[in-house]
Amino acid sequence: MEFLRLHLDHLILGVLGLMSFVMLALAVERYLYFWRVNLKQFQHIELLKLALTRNLTTISSVGSNAPYIGLLGTVLGILVTFHDMGQGGKIDVNTIMLGLAMALKATAAGLLVAIPAIVFYNGLLRKVEVLTSRWTALQDGQT
Rank of each mutant, 00 (worst) to 15 (best):
N94Q: 09
I91P: 05
A109I: 09
N55E: 08
N38G: 07
T81D: 02
H44D: 13
H10K: 12
S60M: 11
S61E: 04
L47R: 11
G73T: 03
L52V: 06
G73A: 09
G63N: 03
L48N: 11
G110C: 08
L26N: 10
A109T: 11
T107E: 03
G63A: 05
P67R: 09
L39G: 10
A106G: 14
L50M: 09
W35D: 05
R30H: 06
L13Q: 02
I91E: 01
I91H: 01
L104T: 14
I45Q: 15
Q43W: 05
L47S: 11
L56D: 02
L6F: 09
M97V: 15
L56G: 07
H10P: 02
L56P: 11
L76M: 15
A108P: 01
A27W: 05
G14Q: 05
G88E: 01
K49Y: 04
G63M: 06
T57K: 08
Y68P: 02
M97E: 06
Y68C: 11
L104Y: 04
I78V: 15
T53N: 10
I91C: 06
V37S: 02
V28I: 15
Y31T: 15
V62G: 03
W35M: 06
A27Q: 08
N94E: 03
L26M: 14
L39K: 02
L48E: 08
A103L: 11
G86M: 03
I78P: 06
A108K: 04
L47C: 01
L8H: 01
Y31W: 09
V80Y: 03
S61K: 08
L16D: 02
G86V: 00
R54W: 01
V37P: 04
V62A: 03
A51H: 04
V15I: 15
G88L: 05
S64V: 15
D9F: 09
L8C: 04
P67D: 00
M97W: 00
N94W: 00
V15L: 15
Q87I: 06
L112C: 11
L98S: 11
M85I: 15
F82N: 10
L6E: 12
L71C: 12
Q43N: 13
A66P: 05
G86C: 07
Q43L: 13
S64C: 10
L98M: 13
H10A: 11
H10T: 10
G86P: 06
I78D: 03
L56W: 00
L24G: 01
L16M: 09
S64A: 15
Y33Q: 12
F34Q: 07
T95M: 12
L98N: 08
V15K: 04
G77K: 08
I45A: 07
Y33P: 12
G110H: 04
T107I: 11
G99P: 12
N38C: 13
L76I: 14
G73V: 01
L50A: 14
A51T: 10
L76C: 12
G86Q: 07
L13M: 13
K105D: 01
L71P: 12
K105F: 12
H10R: 06
L47K: 10
K90C: 00
E29L: 07
Y68M: 14
G77A: 12
L52N: 02
L52E: 01
L100P: 05
G17M: 07
K90D: 03
K49S: 13
A109H: 01
L98Y: 00
